[in-house]
Simulated scan of single mutants.
Amino acid sequence: MTKPPSLPPLVRNLLLGLLSVIVLAGVVLLLNRGSQVRLEGSILKVRVVPTDDNACLAVVDFRVKNPSSTLFQVKELRIVATGADGAPIEGQTVPQMDLDRVLAYHKIAGERFTPVLKERDRLRPGATEDRTAAAGFALSEKAFGARKGLVLKIQDADGVTTEFGDVPPKP
């Protein structure tokens, strides 16, 4: 019976060293995956309240999750619509008190069910929350309804920006 050929010692040691490096890198990545500041989110509902012939208010209900092991403190929240022509249109964010007044006046739009996400709000590590945000746009309700998309941009106090949005509305 013949003995199977063996690898030369240099090749065998090189392969063992490479395997060790790959295992070590995988362990380091696995242990540090929660230390990266980030958010995951999805838009649940967008309500449009016409405030004028050429202006509207977009009330966005969304779910946000902080999957990291780091506290996320909101520095800035922006809502950007993509117009029918593809141009980005940034809305003017609306504070909670003004939003409550508008929704109380326009009863058909419904009420605010979740807290408004605002500057200096903190999202705890591992937490999932339902929140609301609103922005005024210098677009008619019809023009806003013809948009191609809507994106929420949430910036952390450390500068990291997370973006998530909805699918463009169907005609």
Rank of each mutant, 00 (worst) to 15 (best):
I79K: 04
R47C: 01
K75D: 13
P95A: 08
P9R: 11
V48F: 03
N13H: 05
G159P: 01
A87T: 12
A84T: 05
T128R: 15
G86H: 08
P115G: 11
P95G: 05
T132R: 12
G17M: 13
S6A: 14
V48Y: 02
R12Q: 04
K153H: 03
I22D: 02
V94I: 15
T51W: 05
D166E: 15
V116K: 06
V23A: 12
R63P: 00
V23K: 04
R147V: 06
F137K: 03
R131A: 14
E163F: 07
L103D: 00
V28K: 01
P168I: 12
L152R: 03
K142W: 08
L71M: 09
R38F: 00
P8A: 09
K170R: 12
L14R: 02
V23Y: 03
G145V: 06
E129N: 13
F164W: 15
A157L: 14
G91E: 07
P125G: 06
R124G: 00
V151K: 09
L10H: 06
G17V: 11
P95N: 13
L152M: 11
D156T: 14
V74I: 09
P8I: 09
E129C: 09
P169S: 13
T128C: 12
L30E: 09
G165F: 14
Q155I: 10
G86S: 12
L10M: 09
V160T: 08
A146I: 10
G165I: 14
E119F: 07
K65P: 00
Q155G: 02
F144W: 10
T161S: 14
V59W: 07
V116S: 10
Q36R: 12
F62T: 04
I22V: 10
L10C: 02
Q73A: 02
P9A: 11
I43K: 12
G159H: 05
A146H: 11
K45N: 15
A138Q: 02
T114E: 15
P8F: 07
D130Y: 07
L14S: 05
E111D: 07
L31P: 00
V116P: 00
A84N: 08
R63Y: 03
A146C: 10
V116N: 06
C56T: 06
